Amino acid sequence: MQYDPFPEDSEDNQQIQNERARAASRSTWVSVAVNVLLSALQIVIGTLSRSQALIADGVHSLSDLVSDFIVLFANHHSRKEADDDHPYGHQRFETAASMGLGMILLAVAIGMLWSALGKLKAPENIPQVQASALWVACVALVAKECLFRYMLAAAKRVKSSMLVANAWHARSDAASSLVVALGIVGNLFGYPVLDPIAALIVALLIGKMGWEFGWEALHDLMDRSADEAEVQAIRRTLMETPGVSGVHDVRTRKMGDLIVVDAHIEVDGTLSVEAGHDIAVAARQRVLQRHRVLDLMTHVDPWRRPDLDHAMAGTSQS
């Protein structure tokens, strides 16, 4: 059974969600294609050229495929409409996907650290790499940087934190490919230990990115509020609504890339219940139209004009 508590707002929200979903699908499939080619090239050439750093970078690219499919999975499910079990919709699938990306990055980083440290314990067994590894590392660097810029532009256009996370994942890949290229250059110039050191640095970069993604997503899943600037902007929109005399107890919580808001608004206490309700409805619609708010729950408090209170007090004294 589908549940739509506010059908008058659903059309605009659905349009935004559809646009975000199309952007996510396009950018993610481009990422899939690039990572399939790069991972195959890096692992094959890395094995033939005996470069541990290039192989590690190839495994990193392979892990990107897993993260890309997680994004596609979350993108599909976050588009589902609200139902009885999820009256606010399924937007937090995006947050869960960001957390999944962080966990994957951490797991990949731990594996790469273990392998690199093993090689550094026996530096005399580190082989000399071949020049082909450097060419592949440079190709990977350029491809990943271009992929990052493309994905970040798409993410900013539709304001999707999940796509931003995946874009910066691609940037971490570009940074790791740069380190790999430098390590291979050092190996070619007679410093073979630089190849596993490069793999170690790549692992640390990946681990740092994974921790940040996972930690941010965890806070969002724990109902972290929107940033203060956005909360104040919502408060101003409420205050500017005709008939609203005051606003207090504004609380927010993130729902994927959207926000759920609870607020107390003050209206003239001499108004009828129906008139107060109409003001609350108007305030809610203004917020939904101007901000990335999924839902706004208002509580109407009575407010008395100071001059009226003073007049009533004078009457009672006489």
Rank of each mutant, 00 (worst) to 15 (best):
K144W: 00
R157A: 14
F148C: 01
A165M: 09
A143K: 04
S172V: 13
R149H: 08
C146L: 15
V164A: 13
V164H: 02
L147N: 02
F148K: 00
S160Q: 13
A143D: 02
M162W: 03
A167K: 01
V164R: 09
R157W: 05
A143I: 01
D173Y: 07
A155R: 05
V158S: 14
R149Q: 14
C146E: 01
A153L: 12
S161K: 11
S161W: 00
N166L: 07
L163S: 04
W168F: 12
Y150R: 07
Y150C: 05
S172C: 10
S160V: 05
R149T: 01
A154K: 12
A167P: 13
N166G: 07
A170G: 02
H169F: 09
A170P: 00
D173W: 06
S172D: 02
A154N: 07
A143R: 08
A167L: 10
R149M: 06
K144M: 08
E145K: 04
K159C: 03
M162N: 07
C146M: 15
S160Y: 09
L152Q: 04
A170R: 01
S160L: 11
A153K: 15
R149S: 03
R157N: 15
Y150G: 05
S172F: 04
K156E: 14
L147W: 03
F148M: 03
R157F: 05
S172N: 10
S160N: 06
S161V: 09
L147R: 10
A165F: 11
W168Q: 09
M151I: 04
A153H: 12
C146S: 10
E145L: 14
A155P: 12
R171W: 08
S160T: 06
A170L: 03
A165C: 13
M151L: 12
V164W: 01
Y150P: 02
A165K: 08
H169R: 03
K159I: 02
M162T: 08
S160P: 08
W168T: 10
L163E: 07
D173M: 08
E145V: 10
W168I: 06
R157C: 01
F148R: 01
V158D: 14
A143T: 03
R171V: 03
K144I: 05
A143V: 01
M151P: 00
K144L: 06
N166T: 13
C146G: 10
L152N: 13
R171E: 05
Y150S: 12
A170W: 00
S160C: 11
K156F: 05
F148A: 03
A165D: 11
M162P: 09
L147H: 07
A170N: 14
V158C: 12
N166S: 13
N166P: 12
K144F: 02
V158Y: 08
A165W: 10
L163H: 01
E145W: 06
L152K: 06
C146K: 05
R171F: 11
L152R: 12
A154H: 08
L152D: 11
R171C: 05
Y150K: 13
D173F: 08
R171N: 06
H169E: 08
V164T: 15
M151G: 01
A153N: 13
M162Y: 09
A167H: 06
K159Q: 15
M151Y: 00
C146I: 12
A153Y: 09
R157H: 15
A155H: 07
A155D: 11
